[in-house]
Amino acid sequence: MPKSSGPSSPAGRGVVITGASSGLGEVCALHLSRVGFHVFAGVRRPEDGERLRVAATGRLTPVIVDVTDEKSVQAAVYEVTESAGEAGLWGLVNNAGIAVTAPLECVPSELMRRQLDTNVTGQLLVIQGFLPLLRAGAGRIVNVTSGLGNIAIPYLGAYAAAQFAKEALSDALRRELAPQRIPVAVVQPGAVLTPLWDKMSGAGNRALESVPEPVRELYRSTFPRFMETNETSARSSRTTPDDVARVVFRALVAERPRTRYHVGRDATGSRVLARLLPDRAIDRILGGIVTPAH
């Protein structure tokens, strides 16, 4: 493999990105299309795909895919294979995901399964399906995780568990695919204000309301305060979806992509804290989240 870290031209190269209906995925799909990639944008609804097609530059093809449905993934792989042909794919950006936010005591089993199915098992299904096209196109994989793949924060335990698992999946894949010269890079955004925050708040409140009153009372003051603080942090964050899109682009065009790209000070900070501080020190830093206000 060449040792240069210079960029590769995106012109006409095929890239699949999942979770492109809204938020980070939508912004990334449109950005990659603008800079010259032919983007296969994974969406769950035809109307989202049509909206993306209209907003794009003519180099975007919507693909209907539900990453938690094996038949849906297989159909998407077939559709992209028919379009890409022998050229294969230059990149696969695994961005699809949900965020379950609630005290772990209040997370029902079906919601935890959905969290892991979407953010972990579904990502592996997509990777397995598209690997033959990536081999044909000398391509690479970019897995979008988050700073919560470094430190697990109270009330985001389900989401952090999925992100930790996706980080581990990425590390194992990078080592397994290195002999085949298929790079695997992780992009870790910090707090970014997207429609995901509204979904998190609603789902978290429903989870809290679903448990018996004595359990609900234990978290009645701290959980809403956490959600409010979390949203405030996202709104005040200087990291934007465009910042994430530019880093995804860098990971796709670098001749030798880094193993990890951190986007935003909080993503970088969580990585540093996880490496430098002992668990008990981190516990003390995060202790205010679960301490009732007086």
Rank of each mutant, 00 (worst) to 15 (best):
A41R: 00
L52F: 06
L104K: 09
R216Q: 14
R34G: 10
R216F: 11
S4Q: 14
S221D: 15
A76V: 09
A55H: 04
G287A: 12
A41C: 10
V80H: 11
P278I: 06
L208H: 07
I64N: 07
R181S: 14
V120M: 02
V187Y: 04
I182P: 09
R45A: 13
L92D: 01
A87C: 08
I285D: 03
G129K: 11
E79Y: 11
T57V: 08
G49P: 09
M1Y: 08
A254C: 10
A245P: 02
F164S: 00
M227H: 04
W197A: 05
S33L: 05
R284M: 10
G49D: 10
R271I: 02
N95E: 02
K3D: 11
I282M: 13
P224V: 11
V186P: 01
S270L: 15
H31I: 03
H262C: 11
I285K: 10
A234W: 03
I64D: 09
V80D: 08
G287R: 12
A152W: 00
V67H: 02
D48G: 08
H31S: 08
N150T: 02
A245L: 05
S5Y: 13
V253M: 06
A178M: 10
V187D: 06
A136K: 15
L92Q: 10
R275F: 04
S22G: 03
F226Y: 14
I151K: 01
R225Q: 11
R280L: 07
E176R: 13
A234R: 13
G36R: 06
G58P: 09
V67F: 09
L30I: 08
D48C: 01
V144F: 08
G204Y: 09
G137R: 01
A267K: 00
A56H: 04
K199Q: 14
E86F: 07
I153N: 03
L124H: 14
G269H: 05
P183W: 07
R258I: 04
